[in-house]
């Protein structure tokens, strides 16, 4: 079976598609030409850098601790990205890291503890990367939804508090609604997989010459890993943010506009 190795010449040829994007921007006067060029160059440099570092980190001759350090760095960086994308949410940096850290612990423990994949640098780093990348979006979405729920239902929440309900009781209904909204996109994506689109890992494996059934098995395991991690991060984030919106004496704080 032939593999789809991309040669340097092939990579250059694929830049034709970037030229198409630039052409569209120019003819439609979108003013995005510089941005497209910058994004293309930046992504290539970043990927090359990561490729070189990864080759070192996941080399079977290197100790596994290096890969774990890489995972820890990803979780920390995810917290920073979440903070940058939703700075208006109180305590989002710390909560983001806790949420993703919790998801990493749960999902990686299952994946490696039950032997779904062998615990090696070459499996740990990319799987954790998939988990972190997908969880980041769910985390930001969950945080925003919680704040939106409490902003738009402030009167109801305060009416419940005024009846002597604890902040936990008064917020239960709105947290549940926020969590449901945050989880729905990932559930829908999981449902549509295979019918509407072929996910990245599977496509990559097939292009690399792996048997499609084998690729499907890998992809399915990754998808469940992502679903589990999204559910964990969204839950931790929802409960965490919900907790921070109240004072210890059960008052709802002034809410930021998201």
């Amino acid at each position: 079976m032939s593999t789809a190795d991309v040669t340097t010449l092939g990579l250059i040829a694929s830049l034709i598609l970037v030229v198409v994007a630039i052409g569209i921007s120019a003819t439609q006067r979108l003013g995005l030409e510089r941005d497209i060029v910058w994004a293309t160059v930046r992504s290539l440099v970043q990927l090359l850098f990561v490729g070189v570092v990864l080759a070192f980190v996941i080399d079977p001759g290197q100790p596994l601790i290096l890969s774990w350090a890489w995972v820890a760095a990803m979780v920390s960086f995810a917290g920073v990205v979440i903070h940058r994308r939703a700075p208006e949410i109180p305590g989002v940096l710390f909560l983001g890291m806790v949420a993703i850290g919790a998801a990493a612990t749960v999902t990686l423990a299952v994946i490696f503890g039950l032997g779904v994949f062998p615990l090696e640098g070459r499996t740990l780093v990319p799987l954790a990367g998939m988990m972190v990348g997908n969880s980041m979006n769910a985390t930001v979405l969950a945080a925003r939804r919680v704040v939106d729920e409490f902003s738009s239902n402030r009167r109801e929440v305060e009416a419940r508090l005024a009846l002597g309900q604890s902040s936990r009781q008064a917020s239960r209904r709105y947290l549940r609604s926020a969590l449901r909204t945050a989880l729905t996109p990932q559930i829908e994506t999981t449902k549509a997989v295979g019918l509407v689109f072929l996910p990245g890992a599977m496509t990559g494996l097939i292009l690399a010459g792996v048997d499609p059934i084998e690729a499907v098995r890998v992809q399915a395991a990754i998808m469940y890993l992502i679903l589990g991690s999204v559910a964990t991060t969204a839950t931790v984030m929802t409960i965490g943010i919900g907790h921070r919106l109240f004072t210890p004496d059960h008052r709802l704080i002034r809410l930021p506009r998201s």
Partner: peptide, 13 residues
């Protein structure tokens, strides 16, 4: 206790 207080002080908005 704030919860006891609120039960003793009813509020209508």
């Amino acid at each position: 206790d704030p919860l006891d207080l609120r039960r003793a002080v009813g509020m209508v908005f």
